[in-house]
């Protein structure tokens, strides 16, 4: 922390290096100083505490993938992590590194928003918690100051009667997805929708939470028709994809609509099964 406060603005934190080192190899970034966190053993824990799971920023993505309490308490995260790149990348890449990199096409930032995670920033003298929804400020930009590092992620257990789904479409397995969505549906005791959440990747300059669309579902029953109108609303009005060489914006919106319908159906079905 001393090094970072002395060199704030010029030093880069090296976590798993699966995004930073490629950028350095291409000479896109040339930091004068790297501060390597790989030997900071106390940042790589995963543990349950009360109704949350606490994850150290240096926990490897591969450890998230095989953690039994994540599988049980936060199945959305468990199911989504294998979609991150390839095993060789997940063996080295960290949860904290991916979150702080804030790539709009990455899975972990949007999952943190979907799961209402809190992120703990720390500088030399103080710590603070930031809600995931306030953390991502834009493309590759977060609420962290240049003398702060992300040290811990707090993810609440998914509530009872909650179904989940994660879906993405990539040109090839392991590539960045052209579009992706995380869906959560919580039913009340009568089987009506208590709350729903849809968060998209590669659909704007950060994770996109389609809150106005999911609001349409609250208090109602999830039917083919209501799901379709939410998918149409979210894909036409709430996301703002940029398009790239693999997919035009029209195609991205089309994918968002189709994936939203499939994901909401799967999430609603799973929520029903847990009744």
């Amino acid at each position: 922390m001393d090094l970072l406060s002395q060199h704030a603005g010029e030093a880069k934190i090296l976590a798993g290096g699966q995004s930073l080192v490629p950028a350095m190899n291409f000479r896109v970034v040339q930091p004068s100083l790297l501060i390597d966190l790989n030997r900071v053993a106390e940042l790589s824990f995963i543990r349950e505490e009360g109704n949350v799971i606490r994850v150290g920023a240096m926990a490897r993505e591969r450890h998230l993938e095989f953690d039994a309490s994540i599988e049980k308490r936060i199945p959305l995260l468990h199911e989504a992590v294998p979609n991150i790149a390839h095993p060789q990348i997940r063996n080295r890449g960290t949860i904290g590194g991916s979150i702080v990199h804030a790539d709009p096409a990455a899975e972990l930032p949007m999952l943190m928003v979907a799961l209402n995670a809190r992120l703990k920033g720390k500088n030399k003298s103080a710590e603070r918690w930031i809600d995931a929804k306030d953390f991502f400020e834009g493309m590759f930009t977060t609420a962290l100051e240049s003398d702060e590092i992300l040290v811990e992620i707090e993810i609440p257990f998914m509530p009872p009667r909650t179904g989940w789904s994660f879906m993405e479409v990539a040109p090839r397995s392991g590539d960045y997805a052209m579009m992706g969505v995380a869906a959560l549906v919580t039913l009340d005791k009568e089987g009506k929708c208590n709350s729903a959440k849809l968060v998209y990747l590669n659909a704007g300059d950060g994770p996109v939470d389609a809150a106005a669309s999911t609001q349409m579902l609250a208090g109602g029953t999830l039917s083919e028709k209501s799901i379709e109108s939410v998918a149409v609303h979210a894909s036409e009005n709430e996301i703002n994809p940029f398009g790239n060489i693999h997919a035009s914006t029209d195609f991205q919106r089309h994918l968002a609509k189709v994936l939203t319908q499939k994901a909401l159906k799967q999430a609603a079905q799973r929520a029903g099964e847990s009744q």
């Binding site: 290096g17 699966q18 080192v21 490629p22 190899n25 095993p87 060789q88 063996n91 080295r92």
Partner: peptide, 8 residues
């Protein structure tokens, strides 16, 4: 398994 080009 890891990428040796992404580790110093």
């Amino acid at each position: 398994s890891m990428r040796s080009c992404l580790i110093f």
